[in-house]
Write a protein that binds this DNA or RNA. Sequence first.
DNA 1: AAATTATTTGCAAGTAATTCGCATTTAGGA
DNA 2: TCCTAAATGCGAATTACTTGCAAATAATTT
Lengths: 167, 167
Amino acid sequence: MPSSARTADHTAEAFRRTLRAHGLKATPARIAVLTALARAPRPMSAQAVMDALPRNADQATVYRTFRTLKEKGVIRQIDLRHNHAHYEIAGAEEHHHLVCLQCGRVEDVDRCWIEDMQPAVLRRAKHFARITQHALEFYGICRSCAARERPSPRSTAKGSDIPLPSY
Amino acid sequence: MPSSARTADHTAEAFRRTLRAHGLKATPARIAVLTALARAPRPMSAQAVMDALPRNADQATVYRTFRTLKEKGVIRQIDLRHNHAHYEIAGAEEHHHLVCLQCGRVEDVDRCWIEDMQPAVLRRAKHFARITQHALEFYGICRSCAARERPSPRSTAKGSDIPLPSY
DNA sequence: AAATTATTTGCAAGTAATTCGCATTTAGGA
DNA sequence: TCCTAAATGCGAATTACTTGCAAATAATTT
């Protein structure tokens, strides 16, 4: 067996099956994006993915792929405070990240503690001198949205997809 | 004593003192931004703050104010997955947020649990039907950056402030 | 209270990240 | 192999945020 970092089958064939299982077409572009994410040791930016791709696949495709796979839960969006989104393959064991606000270095935190645990997290970290902040957000669906659930999955062609409150 | 939500003095005078304590000029724009954030029940976007401001203060000023106050730790940046940053006054007791991926509704989570605690979090929530994801990131300074600490706080005038690794 | 100066602001233009419209291509079922 | 919905590629558009610089101003000094 290969020495892949996280236990998971990250072959093109496996991705093909995953895509099909979600009712998505297994296109070369999507497989290439997933392969790039799987190879990278850290969450990747759109730019990094585009650079990693052989030749084809332009921005729009990469961004659309991110959105689609994120909606299906195949990949996960990460906010590293770099002024642009990062993505990683989901499904791996829960983990978080240590992000250096100065140089952008990212390191995995493989267990889930908060606040009082920060000294311990820091001790386990390989490359960090101190932790100054952390952010935790929960995402889900609120009651009113759940109530009018699935008004028409495909009707969202034009309008901005999220009706935001004023802030 | 007034019935302000979070225990803290959010008067213009208090903000003036806070600013001065951080070596910043207590300008009307800054006090207005802080006042807007203090009044809002949720983290605010730059747009929301600009709309809330009497008349003056343009984008550049608001964004610059965010950056300055964030660096001083007076306000905190929140990623609500709305495609733009949100900010809230820092210093209040630790809390997190519940964000509806469909309508953007935001609700505070006033205690800090994760994962296995999600059913309990959901039960305590007022407006949520389900939680599907959560994100936790730690921010700090890595060893190499700590090593070359404070090369010259003011010399970062032009270059992009964070030398990013390739992704 | 007026002078002084480093900060901060406002404006207008600029840049980076992400999205959209639409014609063309393609994956995968019939 | 044909067919059709889904996906791509291209260019243009939009959004979020930043920057350069001259004018304004907070707070210190006199």
